[in-house]
Design a protein around this nucleic acid. Sequence first.
DNA 1: CATATTCTATGGTACCCGAT
DNA 2: ATCGGGTACCATAGAATATG
Length: 262
Amino acid sequence: MLLRVPHPWPLLPGRLVARYKRFIAEIDLESGERIRAHCVNPGRMEGQVRPGARAWVSPVPAASKRKLRYTWELVEEDGRIVGANTVAPNRVVADLLAARVLPGLKRFGQLRSEVAYAERSRVDFLLDGATPHYVEVKNCHLRYPDARGYFPDSVSARATHHLHALREVVEAGAKATVLFTIQRPDVEAIRPSILHDPAFAEAAREAGAAGVRFRAVTIQATLDSLDVMREIPVELAAYDTAPHARWQAKKLPWSGWRNDGP
DNA sequence: CATATTCTATGGTACCCGAT
DNA sequence: ATCGGGTACCATAGAATATG
């Protein structure tokens, strides 16, 4: 294990009832209470929004002004716990960089986050050094039976825009790394999803050829912590998507959300 | 200076509108 | 009738900007 990041709050177990309008997850807690939790994940969470699936939420501090008093953190898919909170990896990567664990990402002066650059873009992390190093975090949670993680799980024009911007800073002499995180340990590599967003996949190939580095780490979510397990390769090369379409068809009945409120 | 409000960003959906 | 494009919307955090 590379790094252990304990949850700031204790998690409460329950079962997913439904997801509404992208942001709201209705969950039956083991205490018997039916609650509404904020779903931080803006994506479709392909295959992971199954009614009845085990899910864990964190309580929101009493002082917070949030409407929803819980945050959906983890979900069980195929008997395995998967991280569902897309904000969490940014915190994990911040710790990972600060701990200077990853080769090539450990020698730097200052670590800044959310730094504005290029055209209407903000990079997740900027490492000061002889040459500035831009680090963009991309979280993924989609796994297909080929034991690979895929990003994105929907068309993401913004992510493609980020790749073009990173390519520009590299061509201007800076260093740039796209760091994928996948919140499950059972993958051997990560690929851009040609099936979900071919433009992103092509932009990734171009950015890679231009010198943008692509790396990935697996994160094992447990009830106590998010554990950065190991670095895995990113596979940028094009591939046949026929098997992926079949795998997706099996997951799709359980995707998305309902638009009628609970 | 402290506090309050506005802005930005996130992705899929539902909606409208105009063109075929 | 079906299409694609544009856009508001949903909840929230955090940054940016405004107000007292």
